[in-house]
């Protein structure tokens, strides 16, 4: 059976697409799934760094599209810790036009025969890079943060995905990841809450990731935060992975009650 092809997209930059791909990819690998992550942000590659896989890159997605490698396998970088986790890096020296949606489709069609999951890290924007990333995907995870510009862009991206879905019946309903939520600010009504965003965008919620400085530390180290047992964000990503695998997992409670606040205080949040 062919693997699932999921694009992670957002419209706006800097909301956590790459972090989301890295953590979901690692989480699925932890569950013994065979996973390949594709960085389609050609010219501005970052997934390799977030994954701590930047050393050992020889070929990239453009080389593969242009037939510079002997095989598809040769273009993939294998994770040192998880032998079932691979990365197809973006090219750092070319631009988005170096590859076409048709070429992406060919690459992905081959990969999905061998892997359980093909995760595509989409660049910011709605131009060629977006078309490339979305072309071969049948599922979409839209990442946003609780800020007006990011939610606006997410809405636009959802519209574009739904348009693409009209033409490509393989494509499914998009799902939402709400990243960098600050329960303390939501409590004070100084931040859009889960319900506000859910109500506005009206797509199924896949997960809520609380703001967590452990993510910065994880990125410094090149070890996705999902590997950190003490991180709330890591826990939230684990829940997302379980939901992708079909489990029903309740959403994490960002307790607003006295006990929750005491808990947060104890954990320095």
């Amino acid at each position: 059976m062919a693997g699932r092809v999921i694009v992670v997209t957002s419209g706006k930059g800097g909301v956590g697409k790459t972090t989301t791909v890295a953590n979901i990819g690692t989480g699925l690998a932890l569950q013994q799934k065979k996973v390949v992550m594709i960085d389609t942000d050609i010219g501005l590659r970052n997934l390799d760094v977030v994954m701590g896989m930047e050393s050992g890159i020889i070929y990239d997605v453009v080389d593969l599209a242009e037939g510079e490698c002997r095989s598809t396998r040769q273009s993939l970088v294998r994770n040192r810790r998880f032998k079932n986790l691979f990365l197809l890096p973006a090219s750092q020296t070319r631009n988005k036009d170096a590859i076409t949606p048709e070429q992406m489709r060919e690459i992905v069609d081959e990969l999905k025969e061998e892997f359980d999951y093909v995760l595509i890290d989409c660049p910011a924007g709605i131009e060629r890079g977006f078309d490339n990333a979305v072309a071969a995907a049948s599922e979409a995870i839209v990442v946003t943060i609780p800020e007006v510009p990011a939610v606006r862009d997410a809405d636009r991206i959802i519209g574009l995905w739904l348009n693409a879905k009209e033409k490509d019946k393989e494509k499914k309903e998009p799902v939402l990841v709400l990243n960098r939520l600050r329960p303390d600010m939501v409590r004070k009504e100084e931040m859009l809450g889960v319900d506000d965003i859910n109500h506005t965008l009206a797509i199924k919620l896949l997960g809520i990731i609380p703001e967590d400085e452990e993510i910065i530390i994880a990125t410094n180290k090149g070890e996705p935060v999902i590997l950190n047992q003490h991180s709330r964000a890591g826990e939230a990503f684990k829940n997302i992975v379980r939901r992708l695998e079909g489990e029903t997992v309740p959403f994490m409670s960002f307790d607003t009650g006295i006990i929750g606040r005491f808990w947060n205080m104890l954990h320095g949040k």
């Binding site: 007006v148 859009l192 506005t200």
Partner: peptide, 23 residues
């Protein structure tokens, strides 16, 4: 007053506009 209500209202108006042009 807390800024959330402003965010909700501004977002609503922006999206009415954006969506009308998209569709």
């Amino acid at each position: 007053p807390p800024s959330k209500s402003q965010a909700v209202e501004r977002l609503r108006l922006i999206l009415v506009h954006d969506r009308a042009q998209v569709s």
